[in-house]
Design a protein around this nucleic acid. Sequence first.
DNA 1: CGGCTAGATGCGAACCATTTGCATTTAAAA
DNA 2: TTTTAAATGCAAATGGTTCGCATCTAGCCG
Lengths: 137, 137
Amino acid sequence: MKRLKPSDRYAAILREKGEKATKARIGLLVALERERFPISIKELGTKVKAPDPSTLYRSLKALAEKGLVREIMTDKKEARYEIAIGRAHHHHVVCTSCGLMKDVRVCPEKAIAPASLGFSKITGHTLEFFGICKSCA
Amino acid sequence: MKRLKPSDRYAAILREKGEKATKARIGLLVALERERFPISIKELGTKVKAPDPSTLYRSLKALAEKGLVREIMTDKKEARYEIAIGRAHHHHVVCTSCGLMKDVRVCPEKAIAPASLGFSKITGHTLEFFGICKSCA
DNA sequence: CGGCTAGATGCGAACCATTTGCATTTAAAA
DNA sequence: TTTTAAATGCAAATGGTTCGCATCTAGCCG
């Protein structure tokens, strides 16, 4: 795979996934790539050119279904998104005081035995930790 | 502690926690006690006499803060509640096809080292598994 | 036991994130 | 370039949850 500039790389990935490589969606991925933490849709809206909220919602949902971004519910109010391309599965710990988020590699996925629970398979899970970071302590 | 009928026992617990033992709140706890799975506020509303939705929300929030009930966000749409009295900390696995829920004892709480993440302490976490139960498979 | 007061309730309106309908634009294929 | 399905923008609707405020009521005191 050749080395391309991010926008072209994302365009290629979008087409690979059967999505149209629109400027808006490429811009979304580029913007998400710059974020260190999962970002709310509202914030994201201020970082990209002019995407209407409804378009943002639709685009993010489509990208999430294709595995290009991940949706995270840290607080039950609004969803946050992070880029998934090139990033391994992980969870987060959130400072409830300042909002700082860190990735954590701990994952309970393999600790559960579907059969023993009357389940034929486990398809997914959500895990978020909450705490107080050292700066806020 | 003497053996009382549930409503009287809950009344006593409410007073212990500094909450007024109103019929509505006692009824809420009794209704929650009967549920095998976390129940949505809407469903709960149909099971108790006449509590207005806003009262339901306020009551559940108050009871949750006192540790008498637990709020669970299985789907990102609506919150669910389960009784916490006499029930140890646990998580759930949800069948995404029929909604069946089972308790799971797996808990990642002790697997995380706050200090190594730049956190002074971990105050909580959320964990839910999703899958397909044997009946739906 | 009757009155007093903070907390609880009901009702309606307000909020806010998210969704949807529809007409218009645009990327991708022919 | 023409064609077409998908994507976008705008406005309106949805739906869970919250708030303001007037009215009740449990718990307390005399």
